[in-house]
Amino acid sequence: MNRQKSYIALSIVVLLLLPLFIKNQFLLHMFILIFLGVIYGQSWNLLGGFTGQISFGHALFFGIGAYGTAKFLTSDSLSKIGVIFNHQADPILAIIFGGLMTILVTFLMGTIIFRLSGPYFGLGTLAMAEIGLVIAMNLKSVTNGGEGILLLDTPSIGPFELMGKTSFYYLILVLMLLTVFFVYQIMRRKMGYFLLAIREDNQAAEAMGVPTKRYKILALMASAFLSALAGGFYTLYVGFISPHDVFSVHTSVEMIFITIVGGVGTLMGPVVGAVVLTVLSEVFKSYFDNAYLIVYGLLLILVILYMPEGIYGYLKKKWNARKKVMADADVAS
């Protein structure tokens, strides 16, 4: 156990020091994408993997987070709130604002969407995200329609300007670590066990005294909040958002893929998934341009068919089996 802790501490230190040694911008960009991918996966996994509610609509939360952040930074009235704490609109507050908007939406949505279960839940969430897209396209007064929103000023956190890959690296690193810690904390508490019970058998969970609906809504809110953080970061990093960028089915699907490929229902799965898929897609992007998604899709299919527990789950199983064999050998000798 302690050894595990020291490994984790060591990796965090390495990640913190990394930008001191990496000057290659592309490599830094890769790391940023990986960390973002980890948040994608953790977010989806909390609801889809641990709670068993397979959503095809997480782009909705990503999108609301992205737009919430952009609005906060660009609208005069909202950004004043930020200015109280800072000389200009604060990006951290903006991201939190996006997250709170998402929580509000999911709170309202949660009371009805959980009438659905199984594949119907997937369809329902897909429809909700599409509705989000249509609204973003048409509610021009708020979203600027299909033209999207461009961030003109360089946001800065206190004295630190968010400029250059290194500053974004640290921002997303912190967000990612917080995300993993957050999910870890949920899963080791009462709530985590309740979510697992809901995933395994809703009716049994109810009979065991678990208020399943309330916990599903809580899981949805927490999961959506994490997606919104990712969306908020995306806004800052890219500096421009449009409905089709952030509300696209593609985003929802990517979250699912990272989780499934890495290992659904495990804390480390999305981490592994984000690393594997990001690296693979960046490599293949240089050969196939946009069509790199073929590799994405193929990998997903192979994983579902041949290692349904995901890459991390598979390796863990192998590792445990080996340890057992070695322990048995020890006893024998």
Binding site: I54, I256, A291, L293, Y296, I304
Partner: peptide, 21 residues
């Protein structure tokens, strides 16, 4: 059921991007 849902989503990606290629 859930797996086949995600599986066909993967398939969709493969087919669409093969066409793209």
């Amino acid at each position: 059921e859930e797996n086949s849902l995600i599986l066909t989503a993967g398939l969709s990606l493969v087919l669409a991007n093969t066409a793209l290629l």
